[in-house]
Amino acid sequence: MTIATAPQTAATVLQYRDVQKLYGDFVALQGVSMEVKKQQVVCLIGPSGSGKSTLLRCTNALETIDGGEILFDGVRLPKDRTAIRKVRQRMGMVFQNFELFPHKTAIENVIMGPSTVLGLSDEASRDRAEALLKKVGLADKAKNYPANLSGGQQQRVAIARALAMEPEVMLFDEPTSALDPETIGEVLNVMKALADDGMTMIVVTHEMTFARRVADHVVVFERGEIIEQGPPKQIFEAPTTARTRDFLGHLGWDG
């Protein structure tokens, strides 16, 4: 088993500086600063409603931020709609509820991005989609509609769909939270393989074992703030703050 760890000198892909997000009076994110380097796997953990998913959605501008800045590849996220679309094409996103398009077969779901957005030829996008479905182990399910796939299979198709855009970074928003326990493993395995291939990934997750084994960097959120971040060894074995200990303790995590 080899785990590709990012060299310390690697380029910064994403940088968050003092990010703030408000919903009316509710502070969803406050003073969030962190960075994601090339080929790094960053796991965001913390209680529900602590702002992890919000940060992920701000990253590809599905939500706008109210303060601070997010730099992608050294450039501030644009406001202009067309420019935002260009940025989104360079990021892949995987949702908690898969959000596969129910009127399209598995392979058509994967083809959707390359053909409509990248303007690839039918043949080129189909080839790409076939290769990706094979990669996530679903070559034989290409013609199935989402309704005929299990949750784990749907989520793997969703990962293939995001990869079809050949993104520079993958954003995972609680990818296993809506899954039956017996299908969580197959999705985590695909994600682990991606990490091993050197994909840059941000993963919002409640799967502590995954975070501990795969992440290069773990960020702990509580009430919209980062309460601790560092390598998994530090977070899980020697947390420096009482609040991290509390959170892990509630999960029944004992190091």
Partner: peptide, 15 residues
């Protein structure tokens, strides 16, 4: 149609 479907399209960079 669930808003998540629109978000999925946006995340792919669709207009």
């Amino acid at each position: 149609v669930r808003p998540g479907q629109v978000r999925a399209g946006l995340a792919l960079g669709m207009s």
